[in-house]
Write a protein that binds this DNA or RNA. Structure first.
Lengths: 145, 145
DNA sequence: TCCTTAGTTGACAAGCCGATCCATATAACC
DNA sequence: GGTTATATGGATCGGCTTGTCAACTAAGGA
């Protein structure tokens, strides 16, 4: 499972993508997504340092995507926020696994990790935004579930 | 990834299985596996309450497997120690996911979780013990890598 | 009965993550 | 220049997991 911070980043950037390139305030994104504002500010800052978003201080400032939403993968976000999923951790406990020092689950877990990484790399912020937009659309049409 | 506690449980029970049904002391298991003794005592106690191991106090006491190692799956250990892997958590953040309130990654993650659960359910403590015994054997024969 | 052994139990400390608060820096506007 | 708006950065807090410690309880043997 991704850490909560990465989940917040996905929600926030998906919302930004839905806004279509406009600059939004951290507090507005937080209000719309239900993320604690002060915490989102830290996440946005970290993403800014990694070049995923562009931030602007002062009046009229805010946050924008540094590149198209279709160019930002979920893996990019996990990397930027140093999520444990990018580390070669062993399934059975907290140690780092390698081909040389394999644990009993090493082959299985290696394959699983490859699938998860592939999913995170091929899934873009734009995909999540499209999914959310679709949900909003359906929610506005009760009875069409 | 499983929590460190479950990893310790797997190592300890695998060692216990390799001892062939004998009763061993917590401190001896800890010394052999490198697990902090006081912490292992807690884990063993939790496993005892869930009926995975049998404990005996006093002189000549110790810990034994409550049933054959081939009847104890890694999933049993994760359940006994309430590892998060058994919870229906969402991939994207800390929320609980369901078919009704699906996140964008829900279908993907559901399939992944099913594979992981299947692996943990079909992999037994006896399998891990056999793997470790094999490693020990190879390590005693340098050059046969 | 008393001593030793060994698991049991509860209190507690360190470290990490999630989260909050406050002061500061910076940019725009008047 | 002063005021306002906004991100930046540091200190701190609470909860959870990991891990330690010490007192307690149960069992066996002398």
């Amino acid at each position: 499972m991704l850490s909560q911070g990465v989940g917040y980043a996905i929600s926030a950037l998906s919302f930004l993508a839905a806004a279509g390139g406009k600059s939004l305030l951290v507090k507005d994104i937080a209000a719309a997504t239900g993320i604690p504002p002060a915490y989102l500010a830290k996440i946005v800052h970290a993403l800014g340092k990694r070049g995923v978003v562009a931030t602007q201080r002062g009046v009229g400032g805010g946050v924008t995507l540094a590149r198209p939403a279709s160019d930002i993968s979920l893996f990019d976000l996990a990397l930027a926020l140093q999520d444990p999923v990018v580390e070669p951790m062993c399934l059975l406990g907290g140690a780092v696994c390698s081909d040389e020092r394999a644990c009993p689950a090493h082959e299985f877990w290696k394959a699983q990790r490859a699938e998860i990484h592939s999913y995170l790399q091929t899934t873009r912020v734009s995909d999540v935004a499209a999914f959310e937009a679709d949900r909003m659309w359906k929610a506005s049409k009760p009875g069409t579930v």
